[in-house]
Amino acid sequence: MAAVTQTATMSMPQDTNSTTNTNPAPTMLKLSSSPINLLCDQPADDPDSPTPAVFDISPETALQLLCLNIERLGAYFAQKPVGADELHAHAASPRGCDSPSAEGQLEVKAVGLHVKDSDEPANPARASEEAIQMAILSKKFLSKKVPPVSLMEYLLRLHRFCPMSTAVYLAASVYISKMTLVENILRVLPKNMHRLVLAGIWVASKALEDLCYPHSRVAKVGGVSTQELSKLEISFCFLADFELRVDAQMLMNEALRYKSPLE
């Protein structure tokens, strides 16, 4: 992540052979530091409330929501001790999952690198193998040092040179929230949050948009090599179990996540 130390004012070359959106990028974004005011304050689970229009949220606000949600996850995991039932990217030894769980202990949660019939009995050896694979994939997002730029500065740089849509930013947040809070396969840390959001945005743009920026451009803006971006993209897809479909309600729920506790 060494290249992320470059300032957000550097000029980026245009790829004249690309069919992507060539609209000029904004010169600078200034996001409000005040509490985010979305279009609908009714509870998301209220059946009588009007359906909020998630796509009326501006990309800039969606970017701010993504940053807020990831930083909240980072603060949440910083205060949460590592439990015996959790598999995390920063675990001292992923090989600790090699032996099956003893009776009465919590089992390692495995997430589908291998497709199996739902009626097939649990296989401790396969669960252990999948747990190790998840740990290896999760560690690919760790930087050697905490990047010197804040997550918001990093996201602003990405949005300046490779602006994405509201759906892409919220979908990236959906993916990461699911990995961390639902599947429990990694933690958001200061050393991995920049690479996680880069991979999440890149994967979401490919899953949701008809056109996307050149791979080399996104890698340069994100401060990684093209080879590294490919590895992050593949690892992210496996961690997400290739479940990348989202709908408007999922996106709105994610937009409103900042109003709810993370438990």
Results as ranks from 00 to 15, higher is better:
residue 220 K to T: 11
residue 109 K to R: 15
residue 60 E to C: 03
residue 25 A to Q: 08
residue 93 S to V: 07
residue 45 D to N: 13
residue 128 S to Q: 06
residue 128 S to A: 14
residue 2 A to I: 10
residue 94 P to A: 13
residue 188 V to N: 00
residue 164 M to R: 13
residue 19 T to C: 13
residue 230 S to P: 01
residue 91 A to N: 01
residue 80 K to C: 05
residue 28 M to W: 06
residue 221 V to P: 04
residue 173 S to P: 00
residue 126 R to W: 13
residue 165 S to F: 05
residue 198 L to P: 02
residue 68 L to K: 13
residue 44 A to L: 11
residue 88 H to P: 02
residue 245 R to L: 09
residue 119 D to W: 04
residue 52 P to F: 11
residue 55 F to Q: 05
residue 56 D to M: 09
residue 147 P to N: 08
residue 219 A to C: 04
residue 136 I to E: 09
residue 208 L to M: 00
residue 61 T to E: 00
residue 174 V to R: 05
residue 62 A to I: 09
residue 6 Q to M: 08
residue 18 S to P: 01
residue 114 H to K: 10
residue 86 E to Q: 15
residue 250 M to W: 04
residue 192 N to V: 12
residue 157 R to V: 03
residue 105 Q to C: 14
residue 63 L to K: 09
residue 171 A to L: 01
residue 95 R to M: 14
residue 113 L to M: 11
residue 189 L to F: 04
residue 214 P to M: 09
residue 42 Q to M: 12
residue 94 P to I: 15
residue 246 V to N: 04
residue 192 N to P: 02
residue 55 F to A: 08
residue 47 P to Y: 11
residue 141 F to S: 02
residue 262 L to V: 12
residue 90 H to G: 00
residue 57 I to Q: 05
residue 175 Y to I: 09
residue 127 A to C: 08
residue 43 P to C: 08
residue 252 M to G: 06
residue 14 Q to A: 12
residue 219 A to N: 04
residue 185 I to G: 03
residue 236 F to Y: 01
residue 125 A to T: 09
residue 184 N to L: 10
residue 54 V to Y: 03
residue 206 K to T: 02
residue 21 N to R: 11
residue 85 D to Q: 14
residue 25 A to V: 07
residue 189 L to Y: 04
residue 147 P to G: 07
residue 88 H to V: 15
residue 30 K to C: 14
residue 22 T to W: 00
residue 197 V to S: 02
residue 256 L to M: 15
residue 162 C to D: 03
residue 59 P to M: 10
residue 69 N to K: 11
residue 261 P to G: 10
residue 193 M to S: 11
residue 162 C to W: 03
residue 183 E to Y: 13
residue 19 T to A: 15
residue 163 P to T: 14
residue 75 A to L: 13
residue 22 T to I: 12
residue 226 T to W: 03
residue 80 K to S: 06
residue 122 A to L: 14
residue 205 S to F: 09
residue 16 T to Q: 14
residue 23 N to I: 13
residue 22 T to C: 07
residue 10 M to Q: 14
residue 159 H to T: 07
residue 17 N to E: 03
residue 175 Y to S: 05
residue 117 D to T: 09
residue 10 M to P: 01
residue 85 D to L: 10
residue 140 K to F: 03
residue 38 L to F: 02
residue 209 E to Q: 08
residue 90 H to T: 08
residue 236 F to S: 00
residue 231 K to L: 11
residue 194 H to I: 13
residue 86 E to H: 10
residue 144 K to M: 10
residue 150 S to I: 11
residue 162 C to K: 11
residue 125 A to R: 12
residue 171 A to C: 04
residue 5 T to D: 05
residue 247 D to N: 15
residue 9 T to V: 10
residue 148 P to K: 15
residue 224 V to T: 03
residue 232 L to F: 00
residue 202 W to N: 13
residue 241 D to R: 13
residue 50 P to M: 06
residue 181 L to N: 01
residue 99 S to E: 06
residue 65 L to D: 00
residue 226 T to K: 13
residue 97 C to P: 02
residue 127 A to T: 05
residue 83 G to I: 06
residue 259 K to N: 00
residue 149 V to F: 04
residue 160 R to N: 03
residue 45 D to W: 11
residue 27 T to K: 14
